[in-house]
Every structure is written in structure tokens, then in C-alpha cells.
């Protein structure tokens, strides 16, 4: 089955098996391994990417369902990525607020946070906690993750995603 997708700004045409999951397409066909596979049962959110600007769990989307869509992974989030050294405001806020420990959940957390801020630019703390309820952190780092997302909501460009 032919799929034509835009991933992190680049257009790609690939032949895939219909049962190929989007996360496997990103990691194994496109070589974008920042998107992690955690639970593989649409619970943990480690595999969260943006599909046409909205967060989805890429372990529960078929690559063929994404045909014609625009996908953003954490590798493509920062302005000028992947060459630029600059961080996206949400990444910057995670760094400044120590919003991670082991880092396994972080790519998914960052993408879920960007999607959350695109839907609600000035969330309350409760709205951030609820908006991230699809992402699990087993280092119990939620406190600083929430702080980071609140900090990002006050930074310019936090909702911007490179085309």
C-alpha cells in the first residue's frame, strides 16, 4: 500500500504493509527513533506524535491511516530542526524546570504538551494535569512536568510547530 506523508517538513512516499503501525513507520522506515514505544497498548503516551497538529498515540494508528497527513515528531519540533541547535519553547521549559528524569516519557510528554497548548493557550494547573492524563511518567516526575508546561504556556512560540 502506498503512503505519502509529510514528516517533520519532508515529503515521503513509501510502500508499506497495511498492518504497519505509524510508530513502526516512523522508527523503522523513517529512522526517527526519538518516538518511544512504551506500553504498546495506547495507555502510556510514550509514542505520542502530532498528526495534522493534534496529539495521537502512534502505536494505535496505522501508517496507511496517516496517508496524506502531516506528522511531527520531537525531532522536528524546534524551529530549524533537525540542524538548528535551538530548542522549541516547550523543550526549553522542560529543561529549565527539570521536567524529566530518565527521559523515556519525555518525547511523548513534550508532544502531548504542545498539543494541549494548541487547544488551550493559558491552561490552569488542573487543566495541565488533566490534559496530560494520557502520558505516564514512571519516575514520578509529574510535578516538574506540570511546572514546565505552565512555564511554556507563558513563552512565545510554544504552540508553533514547523510546517
Amino acid at each position: 500500500m502506498h503512503v505519502s506523508v509529510t514528516v517533520n517538513g519532508g515529503r515521503h512516499d513509501d510502500e508499506v504493509e497495511p498492518r504497519l503501525l505509524l510508530v513502526h513507520y516512523l522508527r523503522e522506515v523513517r529512522g526517527l527513533t526519538a518516538t518511544n514505544i512504551g506500553c504498546d497498548t495506547s495507555s502510556c503516551g510514550a509514542c505520542t506524535v502530532l498528526l495534522d497538529g493534534e496529539s495521537v498515540k502512534s502505536c494505535t494508528v496505522l501508517a496507511v491511516q496517516a496517508d496524506g497527513s502531516t506528522i511531527t515528531t520531537v525531532e522536528g519540533l524546534a524551529p530549524g530542526a533537525p540542524e538548528a541547535a535551538e530548542l522549541h519553547p516547550v523543550q526549553q521549559a522542560f529543561r529549565e524546570n527539570h521536567g524529566l528524569q530518565c527521559g523515556y516519557c519525555t518525547p511523548g510528554m513534550v508532544m502531548a504538551a504542545v498539543s494541549l497548548l494548541r487547544e488551550n493557550g493559558a491552561p490552569t494547573e488542573a487543566e495541565v494535569r488533566e490534559g496530560l492524563d494520557g502520558n505516564l511518567c514512571r519516575c514520578t516526575g509529574y510535578h516538574n512536568i506540570v511546572k514546565a508546561v505552565l512555564a511554556a504556556s507563558r513563552m512565545p512560540g510554544a504552540t508553533e510547530v514547523p510546517a
Binding site: 495521537v56 498515540k57 494505535t60 498539543s115 487547544e119 494520557g134
Partner: peptide, 9 residues
Amino acid sequence: IGDPQVRHR
């Protein structure tokens, strides 16, 4: 229902 990612799909 579920979480935001689930509700997006």
C-alpha cells in the same frame, strides 16, 4: 473518555 490522544482519534 480515555485521554486527549484517544479523543483526537
